[in-house]
Design a protein around this nucleic acid. Structure first.
Lengths: 232, 232
DNA sequence: AACCTTTTTATTGTCGACAATTAAAGCTCC
DNA sequence: GGAGCTTTAATTGTCGACAATAAAAAGGTT
């Protein structure tokens, strides 16, 4: 299943070898294959991907940009660690920016775009029925949904910030802390309500609903993070 | 006058030569010494700063990060051009994010920090009286003010996005399109009202006032941009 | 044995050269 | 003379090696 969000960097296909490495390392960090908090060796990763250090450093710079690694001069890069504080900070920003995106989308989306988004949601519903309980496809669907609305805002900076700089971190929290149980179906309903508001060209309501949707999602992850902390 | 905003990259002093080049080129672009829309030659700039292309490319990557240049694979980097559309997009985001920053600051700033910020504003007022009509110091003061509030939000991502990724572009609009006339003194009054709201721990009002402040600033630049376009 | 200093090692930052790609110039053909 | 193709030139992407810095190990002192 080729999902929308598999691409990055404003949705260009990887042309340079730095792009390829970036995509691979992004995926590895998001999915936890490279442990959170671990140090990244430039020479090591370069060897692993059969490239020189130059393109790898370019990739590292972009990984820093999407907040997946933290670099300190002359000391190298470390994979970020997921914390409660970071989660709150991230979702505070998402509420504001995706709320704005939703409002702009309600004002600017073409009728057929709204129709297409509505159909996409129906597709996700099918998938959910078929794969009850399996969380990954739902996450992909959720990300797809948010991506579409962000793109519909037509705000260049907003698209860049959310899709390129913030969403990999969001996915990292989701993949590593999961989304499942009753939250999945509730998220669907919230998506549907948001689309309805957009279809009615009610930007204010769409904004509000998106903020609540994100807030609910945050609370869900918060509890998982809490449970996760208590175990370890 | 050493101003607060002269530093960058989360306020670390430039240690590597890529840092030095970055600061210099940032300044050159913001102040229009490197023309908007012009192509950047890696070899040329590298020679100009007496460094090799490696640190210069690192600097370019960060310039792209703060939206001062746009890079396309195998085609190089171009300095961004200031447009009406871009201005609107930028300020839409600023309203949301700085509004949030203001709300968080109202909740979290220590009493002595508020006191210090209030005193900073008095200092700016002195400066304004002395240098009536000269816009640069006012801008520096304005940027100082916004920086303080953003930092007070204590939200790591918010600080990074606003101070590292967006504010150079904001400064570019200000420096090249200027802020002067009655807007200067009005901005002072708005700053004062915002501090008062923060001192009263009224986050909601502080949020609202900051949004209006930014909106007013946008309208001011809009008219300048309009006039500028009509001339050229 | 713990602490500080010095030496060693490893890692990051920088350089110059080469390969790959794109943009420009020149040529051919209509 | 202009459109399309070919060749040339210029620019970007990548590589391996060296220099500079920081972390680790060894040594000495109290």
């Amino acid at each position: 299943m080729q999902t929308f969000y598999d691409q990055q960097y404003s949705f260009r296909s990887p042309v340079t070898s730095a792009d390829r490495v970036l995509v691979a390392v992004q995926k590895a960090i998001v999915e936890g294959d490279i442990a959170a908090g671990s140090k990244i060796s430039e020479a090591g990763l370069a060897k692993q991907f059969n490239v020189s250090r130059a393109p790898l450093r370019e990739a590292l710079a972009r990984l820093e940009r999407c907040h997946l690694v933290e670099r300190t001069p002359n000391a190298g890069a470390r994979v970020v660690t997921l914390t409660y504080k970071s989660l709150i900070a991230l979702y505070q920003i998402r509420e504001e920016l995706e709320g704005l995106a939703c409002r702009l989308a309600a004002e600017q989306m073409a009728d057929d775009e709204i129709e297409a988004l509505s159909k996409l949601l129906e597709q996700h519903l099918e998938n959910q029925r078929v794969r009850e309980g399996e969380s990954y496809y739902q996450e992909a669907g959720d990300v797809d949904f948010h991506y579409r609305i962000i793109l519909a805002s037509k705000n260049q900076y907003l698209i860049n910030m959310l899709c390129d700089e913030l969403y990999f971190l969001v996915r990292m929290y989701r993949v590593q802390l999961g989304m499942n149980g009753p939250r999945v179906s509730r998220a669907f309903d919230e998506h549907k309500a948001i689309i309805t508001a957009i279809a009615n060209r009610d930007g204010e309501l769409a904004d509000l609903l998106m903020r609540r949707h994100i807030s609910a999602s945050r609370k869900n992850i918060e509890t998982k993070l809490q449970a996760h902390k208590e175990v370890s």
